[in-house]
Simulated assay, not measured.
Amino acid sequence: MSSTVGNTGLAYARIWHLVDAKGQVLGRMSSQIATVLMGKHKPIYDPASDCGDNVVVINAKHVEVTGRKREQKLYRKHTGHPGGLNAVKYKDMMEKKPEEIIRKAVSGMLPKNRLRDKRVGRLYIFPDTENPYEANIFKAHDLNLPSQAKSTE
């Protein structure tokens, strides 16, 4: 006998979210995207189940970073061979592959388990405004809004 009650199929339905990265701070935006990919915004969230939604990010080449990260941040990878360390600067990566910057930031904020690759697979990043998923978008996020903190007035 199943212990689930109600319209569980509707709760597990994947919704498409649109995020405009223009003028957004990379870290803050990535943490909110990771939350949606994991499904933490849903009442049925379970860390062991994959109940997150799809996220489409547009204007990836207009994302911002704070401080001196534009000059100092490095993306490193190693080939596995001696002397095989490759490092790419943020500004070089932004010119060549701006979508990889957001993908790496979101991937680093997801839990390191078997579901990570599936969750990152539901993240679609485009350097400009045009994308082939316009018809699927259900919810557009405006991340410029201040947090819903209660005022003490």
Rank of each mutant, 00 (worst) to 15 (best):
L110A: 02
M93H: 04
G84P: 09
N136G: 03
K118M: 04
G83V: 09
K104S: 04
D117T: 14
N86Q: 15
D92Y: 07
Y133W: 14
L123Y: 06
K89M: 09
Y90G: 01
H141R: 08
A105Q: 03
M93S: 13
L85W: 08
P82T: 11
P132D: 12
T79D: 12
R114H: 12
G83F: 12
R116P: 00
R103F: 08
R122V: 01
L123P: 02
I125D: 00
V120L: 11
E100M: 13
S151I: 11
G84H: 11
A149G: 08
L85P: 05
K77A: 14
N144S: 15
I137W: 09
G83Q: 05
Y133S: 02
H78T: 12
D142M: 10
G121Y: 07
S107M: 08
N136V: 00
S151Y: 04
D92R: 06
R103S: 10
T79N: 07
M94D: 03
K77E: 09
Y133H: 15
I101D: 03
N86L: 15
G80I: 10
A135F: 05
H78D: 08
H141E: 14
L145V: 13
P132R: 08
V106H: 08
T79P: 06
T129Q: 14
E130W: 06
N136D: 12
R116E: 06
P111C: 06
G80C: 11
K91L: 10
K96L: 09
A135I: 10
K91T: 04
G108Q: 03
H81M: 11
K118P: 00
I137Q: 04
K96Q: 12
G108K: 09
A135H: 12
K112G: 03
V106N: 00
P146H: 07
P132C: 06
K118Q: 10
S107Y: 07
F126N: 01
E95K: 15
S151V: 13
S147H: 09
P82E: 07
F138D: 13
M93V: 06
Y75E: 07
P111K: 09
A140K: 14
L85H: 07
I102M: 01
A149T: 12
K77M: 12
G80W: 08
G80F: 05
M109D: 00
Q148C: 04
G84N: 13
I137V: 15
H81T: 13
M93N: 05
V120M: 04
P98F: 02
R122T: 03
V88Q: 08
Y124W: 05
R76M: 11
G108P: 05
A135C: 01
Y133P: 00
P132K: 12
K139N: 09
I101L: 02
P98D: 00
A149P: 01
L143P: 01
P82N: 09
L143M: 13
Y124N: 08
N131G: 07
Y75K: 05
D92I: 04
L115A: 02
K89G: 06
K118C: 01
I125A: 04
N113A: 10
K150E: 10
S107Q: 10
E100W: 05
K118T: 02
E134Y: 03
L123R: 05
K77C: 13
A105W: 00
I137K: 09
